[in-house]
Design a protein around this nucleic acid. Structure first.
Lengths: 150, 150
DNA sequence: TTACATTAAATGTAAATACACAAATTTGCT
DNA sequence: AGCAAATTTGTGTATTTACATTTAATGTAA
């Protein structure tokens, strides 16, 4: 049953059709959980993801174009997204010395603290219906699905 | 490598973290493909999904509230989404006889024709990097991830 | 150096979305 | 019946998104 039950559909045309629907449904399930956790902290899921990209490179700066590239859901406008984070003082934006077209973005201490706080929320525990091995395996199958498993 | 390569991230905190990122990334990969296929036909992914819900019940009507329930990404406003489909004459909207608060929505012949046309595009072939068995297995693991595998 | 293409970021805009709320109808309770 | 609560859809509004365009800086080649 599972999805069939959740979305009250009884049949799919093929296992591939069911998989696509399931993928969207599950993604949404995860995003909902995350969004709900982030809301009290005043940031959106996309902003959260940007902050994590910046933390990954800290203390090195990341250019707006790099952020766009690395975003999971490539959004049309990293510029305005960074605006919001600057306004919240979660990141600093400075002109890149070596290329004045570019903009260096760095996460602030306040931003790092926020992430730290969110880390401890351990929302990923909700995924512990899977064993660690299963998580690895599922991830690998997603890679294979996209044809980038080599 | 795979996602690590795609989003230029070299490490994840845990298999669960990697899984969540992979899920979002893969979902986006799929949505992009679909959106690109639908665009020439003048409908969005959400509209497409609504049409398929309606086809699943055809020729029975579906209420707006049912659509909201069954949507993969529950949107805040099925009402306006149906508006768009009515404007394109892909669905009919009539007042429900037994409950005048409710609205019955039915897909039109034009809508059915459009879906038929899209069916033949077989975009799901792009997922054929997986065998049918693997698609079944992957789908089951997604069910388990959400804890609705019983 | 000048001309022209390319790149990076920002902006204008129309459309879509989230969220709160309003209006109409039905349901349930006494 | 009468009235409060719940249900269903629609609307108002601020935010976000997609997409095209603009501005500024850099690269390249004559």
């Amino acid at each position: 049953m599972s999805i069939e039950k959740d979305i009250k559909q009884t049949s799919f045309r093929s296992p591939f059709h069911r998989l696509v629907v399931n993928l969207m449904y599950t993604n949404n399930w995860v995003c909902d959980h995350q969004t709900r956790l982030l809301k009290p902290h005043g940031i959106t899921l996309q902003q959260y993801n940007v902050l994590r990209i910046l933390r990954g490179q800290y203390p090195n700066p990341v250019k707006v174009s790099d952020i766009t590239e690395r975003m999971l859901d490539k959004m049309s406008n990293a510029s305005r997204l960074v605006d919001k984070l600057v306004a919240k003082k979660l990141v600093d934006r400075t002109e890149c010395p070596s290329d004045r077209r570019a903009v260096d973005v760095v996460i602030t201490q306040k931003g790092l603290n926020l992430l730290k706080q969110l880390d401890t929320q351990q929302w990923e525990d909700r995924l512990k219906t899977l064993s660690e091995d299963e998580a690895v395996q599922l991830s690998q199958m997603l890679d294979k699905l996209r044809g980038s498993d080599e």
